[in-house]
């Protein structure tokens, strides 16, 4: 399966609905969402709080399963995968960047970056080499022996990005990655994500409600998905910031 631009589809959401049963009845977090994410894309999922952004990220990464519809990740439906296989998929193919960085307090920056490698059958030397490479990439090599509480918010997020990259994933999923950062650090973090997308061809999916982040990323964005009440309200596509087009929703 490939798109018009010739790039293969990495992730496909096919008529995905997610509803939660509550005492007062069913609550729809997502309704009938269909979306194709191509390899190397830079996607922003935009929407207010409660619009379904995080649910979408949960489903894409296999942390949750849809109530209806299917999710195809790298030509494989995640519905049939066991928890163990889903964990392996996340470890090897997805890098996560969280709003609150989620670093382990009592580990140094280097150890935090090595965390995704610990279950892998790698030598200690190989793990350190990989982790130091990624810290270098985010310009945090010199602070590799510092603990999270000795780093600024922007520095912690760069360490978190290095951790997300250490397994050379196909896709980076970032949930409000700059929400806790000042404008200067927001730009730095965004520049790293853009560089990864442009230079290394890593697919980037960012969920945010920050229009400023959209503006700053305009030059790389390939899709802008606007969510409201669990439904796609608008979808704009572009070829890396050029020739924007509204996509008609079916």
């Amino acid at each position: 399966m490939s798109s018009m631009s010739g790039r293969p589809v990495l992730i496909e959401l096919d008529k995905v609905t997610k509803k939660y049963e509550q005492a007062r009845g069913s609550v729809f977090a997502l309704r009938n969402i269909s979306l194709k994410i191509l390899q190397g894309e830079f996607i922003i999922i935009l929407g207010p709080s409660g619009s379904g952004k995080t649910t979408m990220l949960n489903l894409i990464s296999g942390m949750d399963r849809p109530t209806e519809g299917d999710i195809i990740f790298d030509r494989q439906s995640i519905l049939g995968l066991s928890e163990e296989k889903l964990a392996e998929m996340r470890r090897k193919k997805i890098g996560f960047v969280f709003q609150f960085f989620n670093l382990i307090d009592n580990m140094t920056a280097l150890e935090n970056v090595m965390v995704p490698l610990l279950p892998e059958d790698l030598s200690e030397r190989e793990m350190i080499r990989k982790a130091e490479d990624k810290l270098d990439l985010v310009d945090m090599f010199d602070k590799r022996d510092r603990f999270p509480n000795q780093l600024s918010g922007g520095e912690q997020q760069r360490v978190a990005i290095a951790r997300a990259l250490v397994n050379d994933p196909d896709v980076i999923i970032a949930d409000e990655p700059t929400a806790q950062l000042d404008p200067d650090n927001t730009r730095k973090v965004l520049d790293i994500l853009k560089k990864l997308n442009r230079m290394n061809g890593v697919t980037v999916i960012i969920a945010t409600n920050d229009e400023e982040l959209v503006r700053l990323s305009r030059d790389v964005i390939t899709k802008e998905v606007r969510l409201k009440d669990g439904q796609i309200q608008g979808l704009r596509e572009s070829s890396q910031g050029r020739s924007w087009s509204e996509v008609e929703l079916g």
């Binding site: 942390m63 928890e83 163990e84 470890r91 382990i104 995704p116 610990l118 279950p119 997300a164």
Partner: peptide, 16 residues
Amino acid sequence: KKEIATLRAIGWRGKD
């Protein structure tokens, strides 16, 4: 709790 959730999110198995 958050640490466990993060480890599981980034692909650690339950036994890890």
